[in-house]
Amino acid sequence: MLELRGINTYYGKIHALRDVSLSVQEGEIIALIGSNGAGKTTTLMSVSGIIPPSSGEILFKGRAIHDSSPEAIVRLGIAHVPEGRRIFPFLTVMENLSLGAFLRKDRQNIKKDLDTVFDLFPILKNRKDQPGGNLSGGEQQMLAISRAFMARPGLLLLDEPSLGLAPLVIKQIFEIITELNTTKGTTLLLVEQNANLALKTAHRAYVIENGCITLTGKGRELLVHDDVRKAYLGL
């Protein structure tokens, strides 16, 4: 569904991604793990066209998207929940959600998806007229995922969904992520520092170090891999 072929991305003068190749099949949950500054966020930003790669190819459903604008990429069905959630603080919860469906015209289905979101997260329904900035961290993460879901994406990019959240909330968020994958068939590319959690959730995973993919394999396999255990699981 998504394929990155040897992409190189620069952040100013910093060579942030070096020959990164990875692939995501339809229906999979893929985790991208690595330490701070390894290039996880940059990889996602390259896919969504915010920081286009300077060389290499990105294919989505067989179509090259590395030269496309972020708008065009959203239109093709890729939604992105960025690091830090980036809820619009002065827009209401409802407005944040409606912007998720910004490019959609099918009002009937938008309404239905909104009901789905409110069923999934009743707290968002209770607070729908409050500014997004008033929500707690966990609620903002729920809102961010819901906002992305409102785009009805084929592929969802998730950047550090567990960041700064209480363990109980993290558990809840990951249950929802798994549910999105199993019941709605959403394909997921997940970036996480919490390697343990990510590897348990993902079907397959890639390890990124200093902008290079160094290891790949099934989630459960990497969980018991010696290097991964030492470097990312602290075991």
Binding site: P70, E71, R86, L99, R147, A151
Partner: peptide, 23 residues
């Protein structure tokens, strides 16, 4: 309106606005 909400969103966070498909 839709464009008004998009304007306010753009004012608050341009990158996020682009990630939602706002030109």
């Amino acid at each position: 309106t839709r464009i008004g909400t998009a304007m306010r969103a753009t004012a608050q966070d341009k990158t996020m606005a682009r990630l939602l498909g706002i030109d």
